[in-house]
């Protein structure tokens, strides 16, 4: 009882940090990014899907459905490529949920939390890795599309704009996935979220114009974020007027990012106190 009252000095005080907080926050986040990237690079099944999914979808939409779908544009491939890019990068971002759930349920997180680091660096690591991974898979989709006759009309500024919207999209979807990853009790449950994300583009203007859908579905499609995002990317790449879809797209994506980020950090802290 008396022992608790008098606090003895620690025998081996750690050396005072030579760098500031910000330096270590950046360094720790860097370590976590490398960790996440290694995990991604070594999950062969995940990598295979990342390559096979876009290529298969492209072939399917352009050659199988392409003849039957009338979009009012000259070539269906020019219409559908932005949608396939979003589908693939959205799915890729959603896989973040599975990685986060794995970390939260497998004991790794307890060890990270007892380190002298800002432990949410582990979340940032997953999100940044997701951005890099999806940049790669988007380039892959684009490459395949160009080979199949995709004929973009964008100038340098439009390309930059499209890249910006896509990055923001992946950022938003990745943080949203982190939230689901933190909520999920198992990796299987987290995997369910990826299906939800995979499904969203189908009820948007990604593959068919919304005016071909039944009224209720069209209403949903027109008011969900995938539609303005697809329209923006399509307009930027094909050089068509952007028609007021850019602002809603950016508003949606920024909103999702801010809300998800806030929710994720709050949930992360709360799960610490379980």
């Amino acid at each position: 009882m008396t022992a608790t009252a008098t606090a003895p000095p620690a025998p081996a005080p750690p050396p005072p940090p030579r760098h500031g907080r910000l330096y270590w926050a950046a360094a720790d986040t860097g370590v976590m990014i490398v960790r996440s990237l290694r995990q991604v690079a070594r999950q062969t099944d995940g990598l295979l899907i990342a390559v096979i999914l876009p290529v298969t979808l492209m072939l399917l939409f352009v050659y199988v459905f392409g003849g039957a779908i009338s979009t009012g544009t000259d070539a269906y491939i020019d219409y559908v490529v932005p949608g396939i890019i979003l589908l693939c990068s959205g799915y890729g971002a959603a896989l973040t949920a599975v990685s986060v759930t794995a970390d939260m349920t497998e004991g790794v997180i307890d060890r990270f939390r007892t380190l002298p680091i800002m432990s949410s660096a582990v979340l940032i690591g997953h999100v940044v890795a997701s951005l890099l991974r999806n940049t790669f898979s988007t380039l892959l989709v684009l490459g395949t599309a160009l080979l199949m006759g995709f004929d973009p009309k964008a100038g340098p500024l439009e390309w930059l704009g499209a890249a910006g919207v896509l990055l923001l999209f992946v950022l938003a979807m990745s943080w949203l996935s982190v939230v689901f990853g933190l909520l999920a009790k198992s990796q299987e449950a987290a995997g369910g979220f990826t299906f939800f994300v995979l499904f969203l583009p189908y009820v948007s203007s990604a593959f068919v114009p919304t005016d071909t859908m039944p009224a209720a579905l069209a209403f949903f499609a027109e008011n969900q974020p995938i539609t303005p995002v697809t329209e923006s990317v399509r307009a930027l790449l094909m050089g068509t007027p952007i028609d007021g879809s850019l602002l809603p797209a950016i508003a949606w994506l920024t909103g999702i990012t801010v809300v998800s980020y806030t929710l994720a950090t709050t949930l992360f802290r709360r799960r610490a106190a379980r």
Binding site: R35, R38, Q39, R42, Q43, E106, G107, V108, D110, R111
Partner: peptide, 8 residues
Amino acid sequence: YAAVDELL
């Protein structure tokens, strides 16, 4: 539970 990274 061993808190090691399986893929590393």
